[in-house]
Design a protein around this nucleic acid. Sequence first.
DNA 1: GCTCGGCGCTTTACCGCTTCACCGAACGGG
DNA 2: CCCGTTCGGTGAAGCGGTAAAGCGCCGAGC
Lengths: 350, 350
Amino acid sequence: MEQVSPQQSPPAKRPTIADIARIVGVSKVSVSNALNGQPGVSDATRAKIAVVAEELGFVRNSAARALSGAKAAAVGLALCRPARMLGTEPFFMELIGGIEQVLSEASYSLALQVVSDHERGLEAYRRWWGERHIDGALLVDLRRDDARVPALEEMGLPTVVIGHPSGSGRLTPVWSDDAAATRETVEYLAALGHRRIGRVAGLTGLVHTALRDEAFAAACTDLGLDPLPTVHTDYTGEEGARATRRLLLSPTRPTAILYDNDITAVAGLSVAQELGLTVPRDLSLVAWDDSPLTQVVRPPLTALTRDIHAYGAHAARTLLTLIAGRPTDGYQDHAPQLTPRGSTAPPPAA
Amino acid sequence: MEQVSPQQSPPAKRPTIADIARIVGVSKVSVSNALNGQPGVSDATRAKIAVVAEELGFVRNSAARALSGAKAAAVGLALCRPARMLGTEPFFMELIGGIEQVLSEASYSLALQVVSDHERGLEAYRRWWGERHIDGALLVDLRRDDARVPALEEMGLPTVVIGHPSGSGRLTPVWSDDAAATRETVEYLAALGHRRIGRVAGLTGLVHTALRDEAFAAACTDLGLDPLPTVHTDYTGEEGARATRRLLLSPTRPTAILYDNDITAVAGLSVAQELGLTVPRDLSLVAWDDSPLTQVVRPPLTALTRDIHAYGAHAARTLLTLIAGRPTDGYQDHAPQLTPRGSTAPPPAA
DNA sequence: GCTCGGCGCTTTACCGCTTCACCGAACGGG
DNA sequence: CCCGTTCGGTGAAGCGGTAAAGCGCCGAGC
């Protein structure tokens, strides 16, 4: 080989705690302890070590750290939604924002994977955990009899379920009381005089959809309202529009509709206007989840407001507690609050 | 504490190659070689090892692997936006969806951190790279004279910049031609007869905002249109509304407005309607970036459509190429296409 | 017949860090 | 003055992999 040695600059040997130890004149162990704030090192030594580490530009090798049994300082979240749909839903970005805020304060990072279905999501958790890439997991979009729950339980991966305790098994839940909010909304609409209330729901199969379905039906029954079928959607504007059209063209047209998210509600508003209905005179609308969207349309939508950012933060905080080995029973967030705006009013006089 | 012992199941010791080796009756090294497709293992042994690995549910420990010099199989993305704003912008979730899709096909994961400013973003990259947590990075929201560019260059971290080459230095850019799209839009509006076109832009300081500003100004000059001031916003609905109000109440009220994102455009539509203007009769609106939002409002908005999902996918693919050590010049995506809808029409007869 | 080379596998030696067991010196109470 | 404690610190032993070198064994070539 007469080839010139490749220009591959030498891998730039990074400084290790051994280097620091040699320079300062102490053992590796002391350096490790000093850098991790562990006891057993005098303040003077600690300071010297800090200085040398700084000037060497030392960065600890987390691989080695993880190998010796320390934490990975990351938690995993596998989102099971068709990737293209995520963009439309403010919910997840807000949730992630809240999660991130808490994690970054603890210097934890978030491993995020968007997967097509729950099996692949489970695979991701399994891989991350197996590789010791994460110390804990967050689970969302809980389904009835969700296979991921027993699987994660068995793996022994500290997990926080963002969803109702009824589906979280022995995993730790962080949830809000959707049933109460549903009931409150129905009562509010009934108080305005509505007797035919429609519901455009989210994906069947999701635990919270079922809970809202039940609470909605129960509330209607209790208040003696005419039962209307609930229409399920995939949360997109298209399906929201279709569902609304279906409800409004049925013989028992509702005078009010409760939507499971903001996107379907906004789409529903457009459909109503297309059909020549004036909101809220002819039709009242309520959106679940408030977002800038609801206030940007005319009329602004009455919405079930909750602080999703805080919700995510609570979940992250609970997970960190769990990872630290401290006991926690989970966290019940505030129920969403009804924020009346311009899209609700008494029904038209029969 | 008379509390029942917590369900904390034991840390669930995971199988290692040593376990497999013991069971199969070979050395760790043979297992390692077999599992990695290295030569030096007979097919028979290889098969036995595969079987045992499978039934043990073996997952290789990437920490140990990384320690011995292999890849981390992850890339990093630090988003520098106030966390609360993310939820409102479909752009990022779509982008992340596209990135994720490509990464997950390659079994790469995405390390995501939402940070408050660019310095902290840089810190995240530095930490990840130092810890060998990532093999490459994605950079977004490029600023003029962005300090992160030289820093990442110096670190030697393979990086793809999602943004115009003019700001990406020696890093690999993936971009689309915003200037062309801006010009096309102005020409379209001018062809309709508009002579006073307003612009509600994004954050000053971002490279793509500046590029659009320049292209917009140049197009107006070339076409001999009346110059109007560009109003900058932070992409939120509130600022979009304020900017629109300012433009519409100015003595030189524009007859058409071009917005830098969908949220501000939708907010602008509401403001126009509040002020008693009918869109598109009295005012034409164009949104940059199409999303379900633009089609859910009335009238549906004329928008600059681009496939953000694909954009993210291209970026991820380019980064993987870079990481693999194969050469790449970056990738120029299609320029956004103008999709005319109901929000644009000729201006009112003067 | 003896060397040589390749195959299939093992042994050895780390990678950088943490945990564990232990140790000497200083201190302080009885 | 002695003994138990605390403090500040050390050395060795891995964590789970991988790279490199070594080692029988076999068939081929001179």
